[in-house]
Design a protein around this nucleic acid. Structure first.
Lengths: 218, 218
DNA sequence: AGGTCAAGACGGGCCGTCTCGTCTCGCCTA
DNA sequence: TAGGCGAGACGAGACGGCCCGTCTTGACCT
């Protein structure tokens, strides 16, 4: 009847071996041909140990992805004060993650899986997207306070305008995310978000006015 | 050694039955649980007839999607001359397709599959994305000719800025594509597009900022 | 003693291929 | 013009194989 296992007795060695094996295998054969059985064998682990702690193959890969990118860095948003410079750095850093040889496949796998797996959606929302997006929104709000971004625009919408084009091109595979593109994109997006001409309204004047379209809550 | 079947002898009735069955089943059980066998049974068709004409489950769904949306409409881009009105209509029509009960699942399935299936990428590029994007680029060029969109920006980049935020929100499931959002997005994006309105003090401070083309502003 | 562990057996579902007999064509000959 | 012939697509479904997710066993570790 004990439906949920006891986390305090969990073998950390097995957990790490599973994540490592998953990361290796997805790089070797891709997500489609990745199997739980292969992960278990590679990790020297019983299948049950995987099924005990993860609800799906996608969840394993998601944890493997988190471990990988946590090794790499930890989400820092540049803030020099020069919006053009900061924006270019932000987009470049984001794009770098999307095309990183170790990260690209897991990223695609996770974004693929959330299209059909509501549980994973919530996982992604809380542990990856949430922190990232709320940090980005804070960054945007500070730029709005400096009157560098139109204060009348909902930060959540600005986020979409910033990241959207990048992910669109990457997911639909309509073109490369090279330096030229990032340059052109920065130049195109900058005026969109830049505070429009004339005096900018103080943030106080719009505080709480734009009903934020329900999204990820921070 | 005859590797490829003869298209002239293909049964159109079977083809249509397969596409219909695929469309029905994906709506009933989703793409993950959709099987070739089930499609064959529902369509009253031998499995071999499916494998003979389609290379993968994703390809079947892609054709079913094309049939569905061809029934619905045929990509018309509004062009009243008023950029704000046209833009809002374009975004609204695009969003309508993404949330249409009959189309959403197939759309997600196809965009999911292209992450792992190079053959389907090419198929999508040629038969869905290609026509759509080239039509959009033409629309953008005409607006640039009317000095309504900054002529210095690559139309392909403008496409990304227009469609990107929409797809980003839809694929990452960070919020609904409701009327409020489309309104806010249009308001945020329009300024780019519009070749710069009056003087913007910030723009001078940004190195490499886009050359401003004097435009017609409302 | 109770719970996790590695190892692997187990039934089941779907894969992609194949085999079978039928049906529809286009072609050849009388 | 009629009739026979071969090629190939067709419906149906058998087949081996892979992987699924569960279950069993005995060792190990608190």
């Amino acid at each position: 009847m004990s439906n949920s296992p006891d986390p305090t007795r969990r073998s950390n060695a097995s957990r790490q071996a599973i994540l490592d094996a998953a990361a290796e295998l997805i790089a070797e054969v891709g997500f489609r041909r990745l199997t739980i059985e292969a992960i278990a064998v590679r990790a020297g682990v019983g299948k049950q140990t995987i099924y005990r702690w993860w609800p799906s193959k996608g969840a394993v890969v998601f944890d493997a992805l988190l471990a990988l990118q946590h090794d790499a860095d930890g989400l820092r948003i540049p803030e020099s004060g020069d919006l053009g410079v900061d924006l270019r750095l932000l987009l470049r850093e984001t794009a770098a993650g999307l095309v990183d040889p170790h990260l690209e496949e897991p990223y695609r796998a996770v974004l693929t899986e959330i299209q059909h797996d509501p549980v994973l959606v919530e996982e992604l929302r809380e542990r990856l997207l949430g922190p990232l997006l709320s940090a980005t929104r804070d960054w945007i709000r500070r730029a709005q306070d400096r009157c560098q971004i139109n204060a009348a625009t909902d930060p959540a919408v600005v986020v979409d305008v910033l990241y959207g084009p990048l992910f669109y091109r990457w997911l639909l595979r309509t073109g490369p995310l090279d330096e030229d593109y990032l340059q052109a994109l920065t130049a195109a997006v900058l005026p969109v978000i830049t505070a429009s001409s004339g005096p900018n309204p103080l943030r106080a004047s719009v505080e709480g006015s734009p009903p934020v379209v329900a999204g990820i809550e921070d």
